[in-house]
Nucleic acid binder design. Structure first.
Lengths: 254, 254
DNA sequence: CGAGTCATTGATGAACTTCAAAGGGAGTGG
DNA sequence: CCACTCCCTTTGAAGTTCATCAATGACTCG
């Protein structure tokens, strides 16, 4: 069955994944088809999309997909692994602006000014489909459902950014961490992976930077949630024990 | 010259504005053309756009443009006045998610799920151009530069959302307030209005909610900036005395 | 094995919130 | 025209949450 070396994410439920970084898989073959760009496209249209998509070899941890200030040429659909985007500050230091999982689009930050406003690096061995933007917009003119799909994906980015903003402005440290765990869980689930067990691909520092709290606070909150039995924690492996309790926690007034 | 009753925003520089709420002005006549959607469109294309744009009578202060949960049908280009968007919380209370000035597009929050995720109300007497989204997307297929323009406007929304997120997660109350003032100033300037004098259309409560701080803190910070001579303050009238100093303040590490 | 990175935990302090009270402006009605 | 109310705003004092500083523990990789 699982004849290839599937990276065992967590003990009890290894996920058989055929060639997750394999550059020869087309959009029509891709397991992610139903949550990536091609959704709502018929097979002919998917093939058209395929002709402009470029698939390179996998990136290793820390490898840069693009960096802040670089000319914007393409958007990228994450195929496997995960990425973080971050912005550097003048006086040193940086701020993580997003995490990207398979099926999600990274690089939209460059659309408006034609220059990337953030840098993006792989958090683990990862691969992407590169989609040259100019060609993509041309194709979108011919395929209404593709244009529509992309409008909606950008809209999604906007609304989820706004959710994060709410998180940052009114929620406590505990609520922020809980919300991130739930978000990762939901996104796992969309890929038919376990909703309750996940491996955090990012460091505590990344989490803290993203959530606007310090690494120490992240650590303390995770410990607390663990002691309260809402989650189980083993390094970067997280098991969500009480999903509902976490959700209520996030909903609560600060 | 200025024969109509131009609303005098602030003493020393009254702005002559011809019929700012006048629903008969077309896109090609509109003073905002160069910063609104029509940018980069030729006159034929602008006329095509005009055919789908609907202009209603002005909204009064507190009037709702659309509310959270409503079906998404259209986006709106602000023509005059100003709006705020906000989200209600389950347990009561709300969070302001954005302010919108003339030339800006409001309503993109509904694109992804076809349901508005925020409510939007007028902060003063205001008017909008309603752009039915379905027809707009159809037109975008025919006018590449319109599609392109809208991609970029959505991209802009994404990058500016991310800037606000940075503001909320790493900046102090003082920096946040300063950043908002600068943002309003910049947006004023784009409309050829004074960059140094402006009238805040929103309450302190709105500002606080938007910036993730309390109304008391907003008040204290404004007083402090005023005492330091960076701004002059008279109710909602603000004069920015030291633009550069404010900018440096925003840039500083917290 | 040792160096380096990442993570946990404790003690202190600062920024902001919360609670409380009082000071304007704008609008309404007598 | 004045008194009245309502809302918005300002200012002060006490209380929390989280950041900062500091030290130790755990894991990884050459």
């Amino acid at each position: 069955m699982t004849d290839d070396r599937s990276t065992e994410l967590i003990g009890t439920y290894s996920i058989p994944q055929r060639c997750q970084h394999n550059p020869t898989v087309t959009c029509s073959d891709c397991r992610l088809g139903e949550l990536c760009l091609p959704i709502a496209l018929d097979s002919i249209e998917i093939n058209q999309l395929d002709t402009i998509v470029q698939r390179g070899k996998p990136l290793q941890i820390g490898d840069e997909l693009f960096h802040e200030g670089a000319t914007f040429n393409a958007i990228y659909a994450v195929r496997s692994g995960s990425f973080k985007s971050y912005k550097l500050f003048a006086g040193g230091g940086s701020q993580v602006t997003g995490f990207y999982l398979p099926g999600e689009i990274v690089g939209m930050d460059g659309i408006s000014s034609l220059t990337h406003t953030v840098s993006t690096v792989a958090l683990e061995t990862s691969s992407v489909c590169e989609i040259p933007f100019k060609r993509f917009t041309e194709l979108s003119l011919k395929i209404p459902s593709l244009q529509n799909r992309f409008f909606r994906m950008m809209g999604k980015e906007i609304t989820s950014d706004q959710q994060v903003r709410t998180l940052l402005s009114v929620k406590t440290a505990e609520q922020r961490v809980a919300a991130l765990l739930l978000s990762l869980s939901t996104r796992h689930q969309r890929r038919k992976l376990s909703a309750t067990r996940l491996r955090l691909p990012m460091t505590r520092a990344d989490i803290g930077s993203y959530l606007g709290i310090t690494i120490e606070t992240v650590s303390r909150v995770l410990s607390k949630l663990s002691k309260q039995g809402l989650i189980k924690l083993d390094q970067r492996e997280v098991e969500i024990c009480k999903f509902n309790a976490l959700q209520e926690l996030v909903m609560e007034k600060p």
